[in-house]
Nucleic acid binder design. Sequence first.
RNA 1: GGCGGCGUAGCUCAGUUGGUUAGAGCAGCGGAAUCAUAAUCCGCGUGUCGGGGGUUCGAUUCCCUCCGCCGCUACCA
Length: 697
Amino acid sequence: MPRQILVTAALPYANGHIHIGHLVEYIQTDIWVRFQKLRGHRCIFVCADDTHGTAIMIRARREGRSEEAVIADMREAHMRDFAGFQIQFDNYGSTNSPDNKEACHQIWAAITKAGLVKTRSVEQLFDPVAGTFLADRFVRGTCPRCTAADQPGDNCSVCGAAYTPADLRDPRSILSNAVPELRSADHLFIELEQLRPFLEDWSQNGGHLQSEVARYLKGNFLGDPLRDWDISRPAPYFGFEIPDHPGNYWYVWFDAPIGYIGSTREWCRQHSEHVEAWWGRDSAAEIHHFIGKDITYFHTLFWPGMLHTAGLNLPSKVHVHGFLTVDGEKMSKSKGTFLMASTWLRHLPPGALRYYYSTKLGPGLDDIDLNVEEFVARVNTDLVNKVVNLASRCAGFLAGQTLADTYPDDGGLFAAGAARGDAIAAFYEDCNYNAATREIMALADRANKYVDDLQPWVIRKDPARSAELRDVCSVTLNLFRQIVVYLSPVLPGLAQQTAELLNQPITSWDEAARPLTGTLVSPFQHLMKRLEMKQVQAMVEESRQENAAEQSAAATPVAQSATPVGPAFHPADRWQDAGDALKNEPLAAECTIDDFTKVDLRVARVLEANHVEGANKLLQLTLSLGGGEVRNVFAGIKAAYKPEDLVGRLVICVANLKPRQMKFGLSQGMICASGAGGTEVFLLSPDTGAVPGHRVH
RNA sequence: GGCGGCGUAGCUCAGUUGGUUAGAGCAGCGGAAUCAUAAUCCGCGUGUCGGGGGUUCGAUUCCCUCCGCCGCUACCA
């Protein structure tokens, strides 16, 4: 009995490009959808750009164009990136669409009618120049507790104090640099607490949520009265105006999930279907949302609450996944691991990432790690060495001929593989791709062993055994194809190439249980190239440079392009320091005190300084940390300092740096200096009183 | 501070509804093979299942506690 399944992935925000962290979700979801379709179910996959909110409004102002122009460009970029990674949506809409607006109106009417909406006055900082209320992150000022300057509006990054933007001393709007005013405005709230009985039941029963998620809600939200949800913003705001409250707009998180319905409506119009067949309360459709754990709250409390109140179909399951780390760390712009989808596609094939993610993804919300060395090894070993190798080993012997007319005796191998089909399908269904790929690779191992045992390369030498050769190759190619059927949700490209090789498309999961006979075998072409570490390194390097360029561009303050309004005098103006140095070398990513502590900086005295024979830039220094502890250091300061001027002076050195073998000898540290290099090098010195061995804190 | 999660072989992770010798892949070592994109096949793991305590005939699996790591949260979530 075919199921009717509506699948969604979270709507990417129109303020940024798709990166490999986003792709965890889109790949996970796309695989699930392709799997369902392959199984013969009726399944549609809808998504859309999330387009509303303050951030888009600000961006449009900064770029001096309309919000519509900003989101149109980004939508195009998103769709291009998704297509590049073989993410196949049935419809890709926008939350800023007539269909979505209509859906918002419909749900709003129901929520209002149910008596869930109330009005309350909210005090908030207002930017009189930009003419807009300011979300916390758009205000900066001096921390009221520790007086650190230029802190964000919600908490202090120096002392950790939490406060409201109104508590800041000397607050500034980052939009216009104006001094914000405290103003009040009426906001609309949804009284979620009224839905408590429903939410407790829905979230805890019926298996709609992973057990961790159900527990999380129970412990974090359902234990206390549910807070009212502020869902309106006063003008100006880029979004939909609330029909019965002119001058107020729905908060972006109100209309974003409704975008799932809006996108479905679009699809329905294009396919002459009724949206009620999917979202109506009596619909037989299952609804599956795939989201990241950061937006669990919206999808497991607000969203079902809204649907319930509006009398619509509820999610069958919300699949929550974890975040992506790269080499065990958060993706980092400065390290180049904050990889954009488009950057990836310039260097590496999409299938490699799809497959690697599959080997890491399980049904839980654990973060997954992209370890680049493992990535290269895994993809090469599994896909090239094992799977594709099967075709590569045998297709050549049979090119231009046909597969055996009846499937030969293979000792039960194909049947055994077919028998694993249900188990593999269950893993896919449960989003346990990691287990699915493991299972599939075991089939590839067995198939390779079959080839080793039967030795077609020996059989080929005897013309009398040509029928036997054809049988062995037919078996191997069928085992290969069976594996490809199982992998096809992950690797649609490989499925397509295999269809061309064996002249038979792969359209159904059941084909893994039916050996192919009698079809022509096309001349073999490589189905996949091995990855090289070089490619990954080049990609990371390009990404690092892109981000550095972007950051120095972004370092230009908003205030410069917005109307400059601010104090006539700023303390920094007294010295007239230009911003070039900072611009040329933007600030590195934030580090913790622990990171800083790892670097052991010490005061050292230069005992000796010498030219290095054959070196253009280096001086060789002998540093003393006191008490007879000396270090040999090569420093690139020859153009800026004469050796004789250095001897005797104090410098700051990195004393615990891993020694490095250089062309001219072993360098056991670095000395600290600022400047662009060349003749512009300025050594750091401690003030009078410091002695060699002092640690710099 | 609160809540949650994690800590299993060099690496990435399975697993155990408590029960005979705790698993896989990768890496490593030895051998075979040479059809195949330096790919394949066979053999090789004495790991305190983070430390300690408890419950039990028996715990890596349940409970408590400690250590370490991480995430979320700390009034517009």
